[in-house]
């Protein structure tokens, strides 16, 4: 298929102020791959996701998405690439006092003209597509419900439907199930994997739930202190590696390089 990798990080480092979040990370994700990122809090998982969708620029190194170096592009061109990458967030990033249909239709904003977007806020357009997306995530009946009245699991489904409407080539998910109970979390991951499998979409998910990562994803990347500790098929991840990944520092964070 496509020879160009979907995501490519070459010796990428990123620091916030003086704090190093990622150090010389190399990562290549090819079309159709499903990758889970695991690691303790503060390991740099969210930063890595941000580098992949262009919301964060690397301090050093090159980050490419769909063959483009997002950080060095003009705004318009960057947007054109970004609309082919969908992202799901831990806190859903939905507008709670809008009806579900508008949050789902927000996935169209990369394609729609401003006028069309404005009209739709008053008279929802393209309802078929929105209904279809909601149906696929199992909550079609919530089309006209106020988003804030839905449960956490349902809101994450709305966020999923928004990404489905966006119809991207790759989906990123930053801790998509960390705010849900384990059962609801497994449901969302299963749904996500099912949806990307049907479409051949590339998927990168950061997860706290190690068991889910190992059970559901063919490839697992372990991150700690801003470095990739391992990157291998999930079957090859040894329990000692997991233990090492989450081992607490003895005193503070003084031994971080």
């Amino acid at each position: 298929m496509d020879a160009i990798p979907v995501f490519e990080l070459q010796t990428v480092s990123h620091s916030y102020g003086g704090v190093q979040a990622l150090s010389e990370v190399n990562l290549t994700v090819c079309a159709g791959e499903h990758v889970a990122l695991i690691g303790p809090s503060g390991a740099g998982k969210s930063t890595l996701i941000g580098l992949l969708n262009g919301s964060i620029a690397p301090t050093q190194g090159t980050a490419r998405a769909l063959g483009h170096t997002l950080a060095s592009m003009g705004l318009r061109e960057r947007r054109a690439v970004q609309r082919r990458i969908g992202t799901i967030y831990q806190q859903y990033a939905l507008v709670e006092n809008l009806q579900v249909v508008h949050n789902v239709n927000a996935g169209n904003l990369g394609r729609w003209s401003l006028l069309r977007a404005l009209i739709s806020l008053f008279w929802p357009l393209d309802i078929e597509r929105a209904t279809d997306a909601l149906d696929q995530v199992g909550i079609a009946e919530k089309l006209y419900a106020r988003t804030g009245t839905l449960s956490g699991g349902q809101q994450q489904r709305v966020a999923l439907a928004r990404v489905l409407v966006q119809a991207p080539q790759a989906i990123l998910a930053d801790e998509p199930i960390a705010s849900l109970d384990p059962e609801r979390g497994r449901e969302i991951i299963a749904l996500l994997l099912d949806l990307v499998a049907q479409r051949g979409t590339t998927l990168v998910v950061s997860l706290h739930a190690v068991d889910v990562a190992l059970a559901c994803f063919p490839r697992v990347v372990g991150l700690r202190d801003g470095r990739i500790v391992f990157d291998c098929p999930s079957a090859q991840v040894a329990p000692t590696q997991i233990e090492e990944l989450y081992r607490t520092h003895r005193i503070g964070i003084g031994d971080v390089a």
Binding site: G54, R79, A80, R83, H102, L109, G110, W112, L121
Partner: peptide, 12 residues
């Protein structure tokens, strides 16, 4: 970050 133009993103 999903490529919406600024004004539309504000309105939504």
């Amino acid at each position: 970050h999903s490529g919406a133009q600024p004004l539309a993103a504000l309105c939504y």
